[in-house]
Amino acid sequence: MGALGQLLQQSQLLAVNTYTAVTSVIPNLTPSQTGPIPGTNELQSILSQLAGWGFIAAAFGFIVGAIMWAVGTLGANGRAGEQGKKALFVALIVAVLLGGAHQLLTAGQAIGNGVQ
């Protein structure tokens, strides 16, 4: 057996020893099949609050972008107008992605479930 074979054998032995050590420290490790995962409600609340703040930030970015675009165009400052346009469209894209996040994740899960 070469050096690669010995290294592979040692890594397999280490994996078995690690698994044995972990299972001996945490006996009867069986996930609950009946209820939700602990902390799910808190995580959902945090994500909902983050989405709300994201919408507020997107609305603020949209307004600021529109103002920059208008002031840059009226003041003959093309660069400010272009930056305002970018800010406006980025804020719009962020708002669309935040609004459609649930549908995007659901579609991704359906695609993943279809893979055999």
Rank of each mutant, 00 (worst) to 15 (best):
M1R: 13
M1Q: 12
G2H: 07
G2A: 04
A3H: 15
Q6D: 14
Q9K: 15
Q9D: 14
Q12W: 08
L13C: 09
L13E: 14
L14F: 13
L14P: 05
A15F: 05
A15N: 09
V16A: 12
V16D: 10
N17C: 10
Y19K: 15
T20E: 05
T20I: 05
T20Y: 06
V22K: 08
T23N: 11
I26Y: 10
I26L: 13
I26G: 02
P27L: 05
N28Q: 07
N28T: 04
L29G: 08
T30M: 10
T30C: 07
P31H: 07
Q33V: 11
Q33H: 12
T34M: 12
G35Q: 13
G35S: 14
P36N: 11
P38H: 02
P38M: 04
G39H: 04
T40E: 13
N41S: 15
E42P: 07
E42S: 14
E42Q: 15
L43M: 13
L43F: 10
L43V: 12
Q44L: 15
Q44C: 13
S45L: 11
I46P: 05
I46R: 13
I46W: 09
L47S: 12
Q49P: 05
Q49S: 14
L50V: 06
L50G: 02
A51Y: 03
A51V: 07
A51M: 07
A51C: 09
G52W: 01
W53F: 15
G54E: 00
G54C: 03
F55D: 01
F55Y: 06
I56S: 00
A57M: 02
A58V: 02
A59G: 01
F60G: 01
F62W: 05
F62N: 01
I63V: 09
V64R: 03
G65H: 02
G65R: 00
A66S: 07
M68E: 07
M68H: 07
V71G: 04
G72V: 00
G72W: 00
T73P: 03
L74P: 01
L74A: 14
G75R: 04
A76T: 10
N77R: 03
N77W: 00
G78M: 08
G78F: 03
R79N: 11
R79D: 10
R79C: 04
A80I: 06
A80N: 03
A80F: 01
A80H: 01
G81I: 02
E82M: 03
Q83S: 10
G84M: 05
K85D: 04
K85M: 12
K86V: 11
L88K: 06
F89G: 06
F89C: 04
V90A: 04
L92F: 06
L92R: 02
I93N: 07
I93A: 15
V94C: 07
V94R: 04
V96C: 06
L97S: 00
G99E: 01
G99A: 04
G100F: 09
G100K: 09
A101H: 08
A101C: 06
H102W: 14
Q103F: 13
Q103A: 15
L104P: 03
L104H: 08
L104N: 06
L105N: 04
L105H: 02
T106C: 12
T106Q: 15
T106G: 14
A107C: 07
G108A: 03
G108F: 05
G108I: 03
Q109D: 12
Q109Y: 12
Q109P: 01
A110M: 11
A110V: 10
I111C: 01
I111N: 05
G114D: 05
G114L: 08
V115Q: 09
Q116R: 15
Q116H: 13
